[in-house]
Design a protein around this nucleic acid. Structure first.
Lengths: 150, 150
DNA sequence: GCGTTTAATGCAACAGTGTAGCGTTAGCGG
DNA sequence: CCGCTAACGCTACACTGTTGCATTAAACGC
């Protein structure tokens, strides 16, 4: 089975199985990476599913609130959403500085041997890499400025 | 010497030394942590420095463009700015989920033994922790949900 | 299948963050 | 002091995300 069925997951959370919800969740599953509200809208258009901007926000929030999706801050001031995976959200992200897309790096299990200063209580760690994705041009100019970090 | 002098740094970059620029840079130095555009504005008010909203954006962008400040995405969809330190930006951040403040964890030198998939070209890595800062109440509820990440 | 309940939708209007255009001001060099 | 132009500050705008409310339709009982 490629992906869990959206309708079943939604029903299992006690929510009504609506056209928008199932379509949005299916879009998130298919995307496989965090996508913006706008990209979800385009994908819905492509599938011929009508959608209101506000309803889309509410649908995405509902999915997040019911642990079916995650919400991550993007490079521009827009949220990105991706389908939740069982076993938490333990992977790093890669943000392309050229096209703005965000990729999940599932394979990456960085050894973060970090000890927080006293007083800070850790909820969750987020590791994000910035650079250029395989699909984007070399753009030596923007690359030369920051040789490499840690 | 507590902090480098803003006017000198600005002049060294070939920029005009104006009231707003020096004041903004001084504010960033004093803050010691990434602060929002709005917080900068309040600090300017407190110092009796008049400021226009747009000018503030442009000033901050100028500072970022001339390596005098860094720009990091905040939990809400607003940028945070902090004064640049020599030797790059090699530290992690901590975002409080309660008060929204962002702290720099200078002492933290996480061992990120990460190997990116082929095709991805790394520019810079960003490690952010989310949780509760020392100043915020325990709020056991919001803490219990996510035991700990990586 | 039909009606009832109410969650979910869709519309309109709004709030906050960030940007573009442009005339005016003031920093710097002569 | 004068001129040039970077920087300012004002207006207007674009985009992301939110709130309120009337309408629609999913689930449930009959």
């Amino acid at each position: 089975m490629p992906h869990a069925d959206p309708a079943g997951l939604i029903a299992a959370r006690g929510g009504r199985v609506t056209r928008t919800r199932t379509a949005v969740l299916a879009v998130l599953f298919d995307a496989g990476r965090p996508i913006s509200h706008d990209e979800v809208g385009e994908a819905l258009d492509a599938r011929g599913v009508s959608h209101d901007r506000v309803t889309l926000y509410r649908t995405l929030d509902w999915l997040v609130g019911h642990d079916l999706a995650h919400k991550v801050a993007g490079p521009d001031r827009a949220w990105r959403f991706n389908a939740a995976r069982e076993g938490g959200h333990q992977h790093a992200h890669f943000q392309c500085e050229h096209c703005g897309k965000v990729f999940c790096l599932e394979s990456l299990q960085p050894a973060i041997a970090a000890t927080l200063p006293s007083g800070f209580r850790l909820g969750r760690a987020e590791l994000t890499f910035h650079g250029l994705c395989p699909a984007c041009p070399g753009a030596a100019a923007s690359e030369a400025r920051n040789p490499v970090a840690p």
